[in-house]
Amino acid sequence: MTTLFGFPTQALFGQLLLGLINGSFYALLSLGLAIIFGLLNIINFAHGALYMAGAFVAWILLNHLGLGYWWSLLLAPVAVALFGVLIERTLLSRLYKLDHLYGLLLTFGLALIIQGMFRLQFGVSGLPYAVPAELAGGTRLPFMYLPTYRGWVVVASLAVCLTTWLLIEKTKLGAYLRAATENPALVQTFGVNVPLLLTVTYAFGVGLAALAGVLAAPIYTVSPMMGADIIIVVFAVVVIGGMGSIMGSIVTGFGLGLVEGLTKVFYPQGSTTVIFVIMAIVLLTKPAGLFGRSS
């Protein structure tokens, strides 16, 4: 058996791939959180619940309407984004002038309600969602076995993250978003409809969470608690990357997924805590986060 640093390469690369997949979800979720926090000043605790909702919409579309994975990839984010519009218009828009804490409490409450509703309806045991036929199987690489679906998740997540980054950094709409993140009142005096921009941004952010949920459905079981499990880690990722930093959340998401994977190889006992240890170190040395603007 080939080894690297005294560890079997098969295990090493296997864990790296798992880390990269977790990183794909961290990146998609923290990206949405970063965009929402940047513009709306809301720490969206409902993010995990909406990720879970995305996975459930996919499951419901398949089992009740016969619409498969590819349709879900399109429809679930749209459905959750529309729900996001409802949340933003009716609830969040009343909180913008208040302290962060109110947004956090409100969205935390929403998360509990959404999770509770899915628990009542679907129980806690989790539901299976099959890998789509087109992405079944895998490839035997010289150093490891790569399941096609997992490769797809990494590629899809990277593509969505980079497209989002381009959208924000290189387009006119993105310029509005960046400017309104800095000074919404002034952007409004230019004639830009900032309230609409806030709604669209929240919808887009939670749409990304739902997309992550659909991508996750065939890998993890679809369960009401799947969002609550991942969101704590994602918040640590956001803190490490720097609240509100777009590229920071993408790089940190993938990076910390890999770190977690590597820890599983070299020091398995530490794999569930390593991200929080890094968070503590970052908070002590660079409180604004690795990519955060210190102002």
């Binding site: 400017a179 005096t189 830009v192």
Partner: peptide, 27 residues
């Protein structure tokens, strides 16, 4: 609201200038 006032053809240059740090000069 201010966005509708602006749309009527009124332009405002604030005291602090309001140049955005996350945008380049052209943007």
């Amino acid at each position: 609201p201010s966005r509708k006032i602006a749309r009527r053809g009124l332009g405002y240059v604030p005291e602090e200038r309001g140049v955005f740090a996350s945008l380049n000069v052209y943007e």
